[in-house]
Design a protein around this nucleic acid. Structure first.
Lengths: 145, 145
DNA sequence: ATTTAACCTGAAGTCAGGTATAGGTTAAAA
DNA sequence: TTTTAACCTATACCTGACTTCAGGTTAAAT
């Protein structure tokens, strides 16, 4: 059993955040000893899962639902898997989006390198795709899809 | 010259958002005709850049600074390039982070597939790395780095 | 026994990035 | 000409995820 302060230093999370998570229902049925929160291994495990789900961009209210299912045993395995599959898809989509953004900003960086070299943007303004270096044209096209 | 309504439909952005951007200084020196905003090609170009920078996760106040530099001609090319290089690094870091998160959630999905197949988590609880399929072990290890 | 550290609650505050509302002006269409 | 649509400002409100504050309790150390 751990106190909120111990958990706070274990996870490098402020005490206020842990209390907030508790208030939001992320630790259903956590024990209390004369009013004081007692974090067991179950809550430690829960917190690892919470950190994972947060990193995928899941909202607190959805994490709450997941943690509730975790209390309900094998009957909710499928629900939990489905939620995770959905988050996996969301993460994959986000990675695709970020790669596109990377191409866009790669092009912009190249643009300003050229502008610095030229001292102006005139050549760049009238530049056509076929005059760009291949990798830059590729980044440009992918970034503007 | 375009009205705010025309720009709104061109960019699929609410009129209120464009006014908010203007208030935040994202269109320095935009013209007015008897009090009404007149978006020129310069503002259209600016808005494309704003959308790009927003996608990289840049905050409004930093975008404001960038757009101010754009008003100041070739003297600020280097500042602009440096800011873009910094954003590029930020995007690359975010992609690395998201790939790690993807590995983590890939492992969790596998975990629940197994739990569904087994009907419980007993086998999983006592599972060691060497008993996992290679790709899953890889995902697990990378996701927990 | 008392001080101090760590815990508790409820309510209010913070921040970013908008969105909504109320009340008023401009300009295009009927 | 009058109505209606699109514009304007200022201010208030919203959401999510916390953080801070005021005031009070518990438990550990001296």
């Amino acid at each position: 059993m751990y106190t909120i302060g111990q958990i706070s230093s274990m996870f490098h999370l402020p005490v206020s955040t842990l209390r907030y998570y508790d208030k939001e229902g992320l630790f259903p049925n956590m024990e209390r000893r004369s009013g004081i929160r007692a974090f067991s291994e179950k809550e430690v495990e829960a917190l690892h899962m919470i950190e994972c789900l947060k990193k995928t961009g899941m909202e607190i209210r959805d994490i709450k639902e997941f943690m509730l299912w975790c209390q309900q045993g094998p009957a909710t395995y499928e629900k939990r898997r489905n939620m995770l599959l959905q988050q996996k898809k969301a993460v994959e989509a986000e990675i695709r989006r970020m790669n596109q953004v990377l191409d866009m900003v790669t092009y912009k960086c190249w643009y300003y390198e050229q502008a610095i070299a030229d001292g102006n943007e005139e050549r760049l303004q009238s530049m056509t795709l076929d005059k760009m270096p291949e990798n830059i044209r590729h980044a440009y096209e992918n970034g503007h899809k």
